[in-house]
Amino acid sequence: MLIAYIPAFLAGVASFVLYPQENIRILLLCSALTIHFFKRIFEVLFVHNYSGGMILDSVLAISLSYFLSTATVTYAQYLTQGFPEPSVDLKYLGCLLFLIGISGNFYHHYLLSKIRSKGDKDYKIPKGGLFGLVICPHYLFEIVGFVGISLISQTLYAFSFTIGSALYLIGRSCATGRWYLSKFDHFPKNVKALIPFVL
């Protein structure tokens, strides 16, 4: 997974050098994306317990996707330099949502890492946090973080990236929900896939 995240992290770091930080919005955007992928690298090294590996083709495709997304979102923001700021400034609300998203995502990843003892490969039903309400709260908070990034940026490109990411994570959450229902006979039927009481 380090192969998947390091190029995007480096694209975030490079954005501080490549694009003059002429206003606070581009600084906040570059910071949020860099922090997002730094957190992912930190989790790979110190938090996650993986049950298996990934096919190299998949890892390379994911890595390229994350890298290109980070590079193009920051570049699109750079291209807005010199244009008037949006009439409604949402960047600080975006920062708040980003911090909520990244914190909630990290917390639920931590809970997931604790459901298996060392060397245990058996699947278990996660507990704690929002796991009693939704199957994938870590995806829910990741979407909240991406919405925050979009509000920091306030570009159509960043919003498009967030919509695409959200649709992908909704699909993964629903598939995970079906998997849990098929794997565990006693899995509670009222637990939603992603959004408490809704989806």
Score class of each variant (00 low, 15 high):
Leu2Ile: 13
Ile3Leu: 15
Tyr5Gly: 03
Gly12Asn: 01
Val13Gly: 00
Tyr19Phe: 15
Arg25Lys: 12
Leu27Cys: 02
Ser31Cys: 10
Thr34Asp: 09
Ile35Ser: 00
Phe38Gly: 08
Lys39Asn: 07
Ile41Lys: 08
Val44Phe: 13
Val44Gln: 12
Val44Trp: 11
Val47His: 10
Val47Pro: 07
Val47Trp: 08
Gly52Arg: 12
Gly53Ile: 06
Met54Thr: 08
Asp57Gly: 03
Val59Tyr: 11
Ser65Glu: 08
Tyr66Trp: 09
Phe67Leu: 15
Phe67Gln: 08
Leu68Phe: 13
Leu68Pro: 00
Thr70Lys: 05
Val73Pro: 01
Val73Ser: 11
Ala76Thr: 09
Tyr78Phe: 15
Leu79Phe: 07
Gln81Pro: 01
Gln81Ala: 14
Phe83His: 10
Phe83Ser: 11
Glu85Phe: 10
Ser87Tyr: 12
Leu90Lys: 02
Gly94Gln: 11
Ile102Asp: 06
Phe106Val: 08
His108Asp: 05
His109Met: 07
Leu112Trp: 10
Lys114Trp: 00
Arg116Ile: 00
Lys118Phe: 07
Asp120Tyr: 07
Asp120Arg: 04
Ile125Trp: 10
Ile125Pro: 05
His138Pro: 02
His138Glu: 11
Tyr139Glu: 07
Gly148Ser: 09
Ile149Cys: 01
Ser153Thr: 05
Thr155Asn: 12
Thr155Ile: 12
Leu156Gly: 09
Tyr157Arg: 03
Ser160Arg: 01
Ser160Ala: 15
Ile163Trp: 08
Leu169Thr: 06
Cys174His: 13
Thr176Ile: 02
Gly177Lys: 15
Gly177Arg: 11
Tyr180Trp: 12
Phe184Gln: 06
Phe184Cys: 02
Asp185Ile: 07
Ala193Asp: 07
Leu194Ala: 03
Pro196Phe: 11
Phe197Lys: 14
Val198Gly: 00
Val198Ala: 02
